[in-house]
Amino acid sequence: MGYEVLVRPERCISCYACEVACAREHGGLSNVWVLPQGVPILCRHCQNAACLEVCYTGALEQRDGEVIFHREKCTGCELCLLACPFGAIGLDGKRAYKCDLCSHRRQEGLMPACALTCPAGAISYSCVADFSHRKRGIAGLSWAMGYERRGK
């Protein structure tokens, strides 16, 4: 519980490894989009997600901090695409598709592919507490080095 795909955008080298890996894991369509500026965009699995609110067929469902998509219930009305604040839902013909956090891999106890494959370590699969703790460690290093220079 509490594990998220979290991104450190300053690390992204726009190598598209996550896109290629995601497409391979999901039958040719990638659920993550890398912007040329170096930001991977993928479903944030929001609390009270907008996509879920607008879906009238119940194809989207929230469970355990995850927004789950039921493809067979989707009618392709595209309302979720319009509602999503991140543009993280795609359309394949007449059905939507979105990140499922690699549910088939997690069942085998494996990490989502994008987080594991990222060569630059920009994408991680961790909880917010660990992620922020690591960031504080990095920020703390420069802070501490500044203090070292001051000699106290």
Binding site: A17, A21, L116, T117
Partner: peptide
């Protein structure tokens, strides 16, 4: 994941 160089990572070419 237990390789000291990659820790499991692969670039797009390796992935494909």
């Amino acid at each position: 994941t237990d390789h000291p160089l990659t820790k499991g990572a692969l670039c797009p070419k390796g992935n494909a």
